[in-house]
Design a protein around this nucleic acid. Structure first.
Length: 276
DNA sequence: GCGCAGGTAGAGT
DNA sequence: ACTCTACCTGCG
């Protein structure tokens, strides 16, 4: 049987940039295969090949239309967002031009809660390893299209019963208890993820802040990368530095009110990878 | 050895 | 309302 695939031309879409922009820790470039990426989202596995603006998604049409199109936010016109940048703001214009291929994904809520709990005071290499570790230890085994084994993301139920320090074995360090307690909060119904999904940005943020270990930065990352609240503007150390250097009179929140999160990603990515 | 990496909770002013 | 510090771990 020939594996099914979907081929699409898409502008402003760079898998490399999405992969590096630090919002998705389960997408990686396949070694030895230059333009090929693999991605695990929840329990789904996808391979994509990217040559210029031609993208081949290795899945059937139905799955692409129903899931991945939405996941990668392919319906949104990012050129239009970039076009809204104040031309006199050369810093933001440069950042956006550098990161034009970034897209804000629509990732799984539970997965983002755990991922960004792990991200605090941590570096990207280790974050990826931590996630890989908990998936291998507590995620369900699955096989991809080529018969290779991979692990889904551990469900709250799989983590809720653990000792608070159990995930230190997965290199989470002091973040172990944050993750275990979050799992308990979900399983006990103390926080209702389905309800959070339906909430406004303000309400969802408030709700997420109730979780032990979730502060403002992590709550905003979850709002942006899982709930697609584009008003969210996560402030981490890099953003504080960038805003101090380039927006002494404050970031123009009003102008970008409904797409601040996209601008945040351009700045963040530019700060990390754009400087020579 | 020491400081830091995409923070946060808790205690102390 | 601020400011300070401990917190795991690995890497330079």
């Amino acid at each position: 049987m020939i594996p099914s695939m979907v081929r699409k031309q898409i502008d402003n879409f760079s898998l490399e940039q999405i992969c590096l922009s630090g919002q998705c820790f389960r997408m990686k470039q396949e070694d030895g295969e230059e333009n090929r990426y693999s991605l695990i989202a929840g329990d789904r596995y996808l391979e994509i090949e990217q040559q210029g603006n031609v993208n081949t998604f290795y899945c059937d049409e139905e799955t692409f239309e129903h899931f991945w199109k939405d996941y990668f936010d392919l319906e949104r016109d990012y050129a239009d967002c970039i076009g809204r940048i104040n031309p006199r703001d050369t810093y933001l214009a440069d950042a956006a031009s550098f990161g034009a291929g970034i897209r804000i994904l629509r990732q799984d809520l539970w997965e983002m809660i755990v991922t960004f709990l792990i991200s605090q005071q941590n570096n990207i290499v280790r974050i990826r390893r931590c996630i890989q570790n908990i998936c291998e230890a507590y995620g369900e085994e699955r096989t991809d299209g080529r018969g290779r084994l991979y692990y889904g993301f551990p469900k709250p139920e799989a983590l809720a019963g653990l000792d608070e320090d159990a995930l230190k074995a997965c290199n989470l360090g002091y973040r172990s208890k944050y993750v275990v307690r979050a799992a308990r909060s979900v399983v006990s119904g103390e926080i209702d993820l389905e309800a959070v999904r339906r909430m406004s940005y303000k309400k969802a943020r408030e709700e997420l802040l109730k979780l032990f270990g979730v502060g403002e930065k992590v709550a905003d990352c979850i709002c942006l990368f899982a709930l697609h609240h584009l008003q969210a503007f996560p402030m981490d150390t890099h953003m504080i530095q960038a805003l101090n250097a380039h927006y002494k009179r404050g970031f123009p929140n009003r102008r970008y009110k409904d797409i601040k999160g996209i601008m945040q990603q351009y700045i963040f990515y530019f700060e990390l990878f754009g400087k020579k």
